[in-house]
Amino acid sequence: MSKAFNISRQNGFTTIAITCFVLLYLPIVLLVVYSFNSGPSVAIWEGFSWRWYQSAWENDQVQEATVRSLVIALWASAISTTCAVLAALATTRTRKFKGQGAVFAMINQPLMVPEIVTAVALLIFFAMIKVSTGYTGLAYLIVAHSAFCIPFAYLPIRARLQGMDLSLEQAAADLYATPFKVFRRVTLPQLWPGILAGAMLAFVISLDDVVITEFVKSAGQDTLPTYMLGQLRRVVTPEVNAISTVLFGISVTFVIAFTVLGKIKN
């Protein structure tokens, strides 16, 4: 019997695709596996141990950087998500308004401008402020992170709002709900998956940032990624693998949660 003709088949495509997936995950899998190596090598397996997780956990610099990363990410995601919700409410489900193009360009700017350029610009600007005010705290990093997190928080919230039925809010207003009550009782309950998704996205983006943090941070303000960047210059031990594995785990968890949130129907 002859074989059925598969219209979607293209010669070699499946081979390349599978190769692609293998190559994409091979380095990550090795990275995770060797984080459990009892020896100092990332090539020769000497047995399973939690040794490098323990050493990372007991490393003061790692502890401080972790706390700092989390503090910045929490603030940045809270600020950027709040701004993004308000901005999304202002820009969706409305007729074209004056200055609309400029507003979208502003919001999406962090996605278009290369990170290194923003980083340098912030270095220059914040250096001016640091000199004139003397303040060198975490606020610079928080503000910088909040800014580049806004588009990431904005996109899922906006998508959610656009998918929402405008007549629901009109129905609420028709049933005597004041504008504030409409927002609290109808808009917000339906928007929350989008808000949560936006906040999570902002959190991960902030947690992962290297370039802008590297340029904006003052002395002794390493976050986990910039600490790791510094470590890569020296002899690398599987301690870095251990930290990476934990960060990778956080990313995977968030991506899955994000995907699930996206599936919640309007």
Binding site: D165, S167, L168, Q170, A171, A173, D174, L175, Y176, A177, T178, P179, V182
Partner: peptide, 14 residues
């Protein structure tokens, strides 16, 4: 709308 003593049955039900 929320102060008008009229109510609406929407086409999409809403």
């Amino acid at each position: 709308p929320y102060k008008r003593p009229v109510n609406t049955v929407f086409q999409s039900y809403a």
